[in-house]
């Protein structure tokens, strides 16, 4: 039950992009090409899920026992950066084809606030290692859903004559607003069943 409710929240009802404003820079920046969006989604799903695990483990076995919670921000950002670096090295050696597909997106993820954001949310909600990982996966899937939808829409803009003042960010933001308006429809989905 908890699994379903976390998944539902992450993907639909409190989607990272449309409801929580997390990971916007990459969302707008990498949604112009469908293939790029897919590639980045793969990288985000991979990194966000396991970065949540690593951060939660770090919290449980190092920060809390030593009373270092006040250093959480600094610790998490280092853990995430190190994790991304490790993944990069690991993939390069063991799965070159996967590395080729995801490689260029990996460095971008360190500065994607969604990854640190989900780790922080996990602490705030007291999720622990297991549910923290699930929440990371859910958030990443929601983020990917959003960027894939948006890339589909944006590909059509290539053939349109859009006024210069609106090109790029303004139009992307307004479209995100319209999309998030549609996602409002999911609010409270299965609330009564799950509680």
């Amino acid at each position: 039950m908890k699994f379903i409710s976390i998944m539902l929240a992450g993907v639909l009802t409190s989607n990272f992009i449309f409801m929580q404003y997390l990971g916007l820079c990459a969302f707008v920046g990498l949604s112009e090409q469908f293939e790029t969006a897919i590639g980045m989604s793969g990288a985000v799903i991979f990194v966000m899920t396991f970065a949540s695990t690593v951060a939660a483990l770090f919290e449980q076995f190092i920060l809390v026992p030593f009373g270092l919670e006040y250093l959480r921000t600094i610790a998490y950002i280092l853990v995430i950066a190190a994790f991304v670096q490790l993944v990069e090295i690991f993939l390069k050696k063991t799965a070159p084809s996967l590395y080729k597909a995801l490689g260029i997106y990996l460095p971008l993820i360190t500065t994607n606030c969604a990854v640190l954001g989900v780790a922080m949310l996990n602490v705030k909600n007291d999720y622990g290692v297991l549910w923290g990982t699930v929440n990371g996966l859910a958030g990443a899937l929601g983020w990917s859903l959003a960027i894939v939808i948006f890339a589909g829409i944006r590909e059509r803009w290539k053939f349109m004559n859009i006024p210069a003042a609106l090109k790029g960010f303004p139009l992307a933001l307004i479209s995100t607003g319209l999309m998030s308006l549609a996602f409002l429809g999911f609010s409270g989905l299965f609330k009564t069943v799950l509680n």
Binding site: I149, L181, A182
Partner: peptide, 20 residues
């Protein structure tokens, strides 16, 4: 199962997003 009494508006908007 949602918060709103009627979902037609949102359902069509969401499928508009999926159209591409």
């Amino acid at each position: 199962w949602g918060d709103y009494p009627e979902g037609v508006t949102y359902a069509i908007l969401l499928m508009n997003l999926a159209t591409p």
